[in-house]
Amino acid sequence: MSNIKREFDRRKFIKGCLLGGVGLGILPTLSKMHEVLGSTEKLAEYVPEIRSYGMGINVKACIGCGKCVNACEQENNVPKDPMYYRTWVERYTLLLSGETIVESPFGGSRGFTDTHQESKILKSFFVPKLCNHCKNAPCVQVCPVGATFTTSEGVVLVDKDYCIGCSYCLQACPYGARFMNPITHTADKCTFCYHRLSRGLLPACVEVCPTKARIFGDTKLRSSQLTRFFRQNEIQVLKGGLNTDPQVFYARLDGEVR
């Protein structure tokens, strides 16, 4: 996170917004922010070669509280139906019989109830999932019109005003991270809270995670929480065999997780 702090002076910025927002509602304030952070200025600040966002997930730390799922819903206006998630938490239960049971009721947003007799469990753990922001994103590859793209910082975004709603990207995503937004009828997915990053804030799920199971930062920095996470843990990515080069990295991941 320190890297973000370095490049955006957060305090100064928020103070500026508060001053600028006197007597104004939230929307005018935001349009002002937009001016301040207009794309040309913003990119002038960026040095794309050294900036590459990624997320580390410490599987052992996740307690399945579902706060990340709820925060994501509130921050990004994710539809309330339990069929649309930008992030979700899965619970794996490996039974002594060798069976593996995976559950994610309501994406884990309401927590998990114990359904298995404890003496029959070999082990059990939670795995948070989200868009992997792949470097070789299959969804970006297949989009026929260029409505989904990778920014210079490695964040995969959807242009909802340009998406034709063909769903090809949903078919191409190996992780089930995308959905068709029932209101806009366009593809929708995790943005790493791109609108927050540009304000110097952390993604909402990282902000609220009480056990620091999610670590966000620049994968190319020499010293950051994320680099430290890489040094200290054995890292795996999901479905590495598909050569999608995910930028969400899992520590201490069990082989049962797909």
Partner: peptide, 28 residues
């Protein structure tokens, strides 16, 4: 049928205007 299943059929001409060269579907 392709047109009818699109979320935004009115944007379908974009596939001619800005075909994404790496996409199999753009060549349609």
């Amino acid at each position: 049928p392709l047109l009818a299943h699109l979320g935004h059929p009115e944007r379908s001409l974009q596939i001619f205007l800005t075909p994404q060269p790496k996409s199999a579907m753009a060549m349609f």
